[in-house]
Nucleic acid binder design. Sequence first.
DNA 1: CATCATGCCAC
DNA 2: GTGGCG
DNA 3: GATG
Length: 488
Amino acid sequence: MALKFPTIYLLPKGLDPGRMSELESQIPSLTYDINEAEVVLGKLSHPQRAKLELQIRNIATEDLLPSQPPDSADVNSGPPAKRRKVSESAAHDVVSSTAPDGETATDVSRPTPANPPNAAFIEQLKEIRTIRTLTDDKDGERAYGARAYSTAISTLAAYPYRISCVPEIERLPGCSTKIAGLWDEWRENGFIQEVEDAKTDEKLSVLKLFYDIWGVAATTAREFYSKGWRDIDDIVEYGWSSLTRVQQIGVKFYDEFKLKIPRAEVESIGQTILEHANKIHEGFHMVIVGGYRRGKNGSGDVDVVLSHPNPDCTLNFVLDIVASLEDSQYITHTLTLSTKNSERGQTPVAWKGEGRKAGTGFDTLDKALLVWQEPAWDRSSASASQKQKNPNPHRRVDIIISPWRTAGCAVLGWSGATTFQRDLRRYCKEKKQLKFDSSGIRSRANGRWVDVESDPDGPAPDLLTAEKRVFASLGLEWRPPEERCTDG
DNA sequence: CATCATGCCAC
DNA sequence: GTGGCG
DNA sequence: GATG
């Protein structure tokens, strides 16, 4: 089976700025011997490492010299202009090469979130991924095309050097002939033809528009298109009653849900939720997870994990917290409300190994997917100008309730980008014979729940400690959330 | 040539 | 059962 | 699309 290490760990030490400059002088220029390469390769599994070592040996020095790309027309932060030395302040370099307004690193107060050296190329790959998602038939053979791009993107997002040649990108996990070919095309021309074509594709842009509706994915987007609808108004006019309830909400708040939520507002919403939780049972712990925790400046939604050391307090708690927030007029709609975990008494089903279909399901956490709006001022009576000034948009808020003993898994599971989670699950499956889930970890051998969060002194004292223990128990090096931005 | 994350909710 | 979602 |  695939022994690939989670991509985020591809270059575990390369993400440390101090090591980066050191490695920079070793890897791309090949001025190292194979022993030094182990500094980088040390975390890779043996078969893969053997392969990489072979490939590195086989790369001729001239292959690694910077290839001079033509000056691209107006591609903002285009193809690799020139081999950049990361050693000369990586942060500065990246910021100045991508900031269009010439504002260099004004945000020193905030650790720069994932802004990988290959961001511009990653953007191209994301474009193609979207095209694949929207055009590939889900049941067709190409259904995994989009996912393959996600893998390549996550590798590149974790790779701390600017790609300078085809052999260099080809040696990365998930990047092979096709991806390398695209990179080469982009390097040569400054653009990728497929991406350019997509820009003028009417059908594709309509599909993208529909795909952005909460509750609508590729299949439904194509379905809408095939009905002849071309914009949101068409949906409202011709298809409103055929939409699911959730899709209607998605359409209704289409523009508002697309707005990014500033960090301060995310924090304020989280605070409100925590206050309500503690009003019900004192002693709740909360972590704001999702993109916010990975350091994103604007979040698409707010995700919080709530837990309480007393299991009685988390049982069915999701119902109480939603009721409480509803009473206080914070919640305008409930998209879904899941209490399956509580219904099973918050207890994982034991002794059900693999190969079962029914009843083998691991508990999923109680959660509420909500539409949120600050009730600070009266919505209906607000004047137009008042609304102009403070539009008070509706926000997407997810509240996840975890029993204390699996809270670390919940925090970990909900903090990573989707590709990070896939990597994590695959790693657990293939290397640890474990089944990772945000609601806990079980042995694949005997189906028993595995406690990865307690130490000899008992359960973790808080959620972040719990999360760190999960890393440790899995034999993984701790990575701060900012370094889990596998989705580019 | 098979695999690729997972399980639940709404329909 | 299918599609959509985190 | 990449991998074992």
